[in-house]
Each structure stands twice: as structure tokens, then as C-alpha cells.
Nucleic acid binder design. Structure first.
Length: 143
DNA sequence: GCCAACGTTGGC
DNA sequence: GCCAACGTTGGC
């Protein structure tokens, strides 16, 4: 069981779009970065992730779950790129802003803080718990 | 809107 | 295989 963080510009694919996709979920397609792809290859069904809005909002807004392991990206015709499928799990009662993460001493090692450009990132179990708490979740979501 | 950081491309 | 040039991302 691993934890991840998925970044998206709300103008391209927002948390509302993700929720509208419902229980069927959607492909997390369009990733064209090898590091990000390799992380997706490591994912297992049931892994949980944060859904982060980049650029304008800069906050974690929800929790998603991996519903299908890495498979070819249907928006790619080169055969190089892969993606996983994600379904919505729940909202964060209080979205956790990037500033709050940067101000939390225990979160200084987060990839989000150190490599803001990577769009799919691993999150440690400790970081997961801290951000969930900051987000107002009373109990940690189950996979 | 700017620019730093990072990734990719292509010439050598 | 190196590295300069270029493009993109995303925080500020």
C-alpha cells in the first residue's frame, strides 16, 4: 500500500471533473514525463493519492484511489506512455494549501516542496497522515 | 507576466 | 556521450 500525489491544473482537469467521473473513474492520461510514468508503473490497485490543484490554487483538494494499474495511455500514439485509472474517494474538508505544507516542518521532505515540477509523486506514510489531518479528515481513508 | 528549474532535443 | 539551446511547468 503506497501513497501518491497527482497534480493537475484545474483548467485542464479539475477535482470537480474527477468527481463527475464518478465510481467508474478515469484514465490519468496525458503524462509525458518518464519519472512520473515510472511512478505510475509502481502503483497497485487500492493505492491512495492526493489530488492537487496547481498554478492558481496550489492546494490539495481531495483523495483519489488507483482503480487500474498502468496501461497504455489512450491519448498517446507512440506507445511510450502509460497511465493508471483513478477514482474519487473523498473531499478534503479543508483543502491544504502549498503555503501550509511549506510551513510545516515535518513536510519539508515532500517532493511537492522540493521538485514542484514533477506531476506524479510518491508520498510517505507519515506525510500522508499529516496532510490528511491538516485537511480535516477524522480518519484516514481506506483503500 | 516573469523567470527559475527542469526535461528534452539535436548537433558535434 | 556531452552539452548548448530550447520548451514547458509552475511558483512567485
Amino acid at each position: 500500500m503506497a501513497y501518491w500525489l497527482f497534480k493537475s491544473e484545474p483548467g485542464t482537469w479539475s477535482w470537480d471533473d474527477q468527481k463527475a467521473a464518478g465510481a467508474k473513474g478515469t484514465e490519468w492520461d496525458g503524462v509525458r514525463n518518464y519519472q512520473a510514468r515510472n511512478f505510475m508503473r509502481d502503483m497497485k490497485v487500492g493505492d491512495l493519492g492526493f489530488f492537487y490543484h496547481s498554478v492558481k490554487e496550489k492546494q490539495v483538494v481531495g483523495i483519489v484511489k488507483v482503480s487500474a494499474e498502468a496501461h497504455p495511455d489512450s491519448t498517446d500514439d507512440t506507445g511510450k506512455w502509460e497511465c493508471v485509472d483513478l477514482v474519487e474517494v473523498c473531499d478534503l474538508a479543508n483543502p491544504v494549501h502549498l503555503d501550509e505544507i511549506k510551513n510545516e516542518p515535518k513536510l519539508q521532505e515532500m517532493v511537492l516542496v522540493n521538485n514542484s515540477r514533477l506531476s506524479v509523486q510518491p508520498v510517505s506514510a507519515q506525510e500522508w497522515e499529516i496532510v490528511c489531518r491538516m485537511g480535516g479528515l477524522k480518519k484516514l481513508p481506506k483503500s
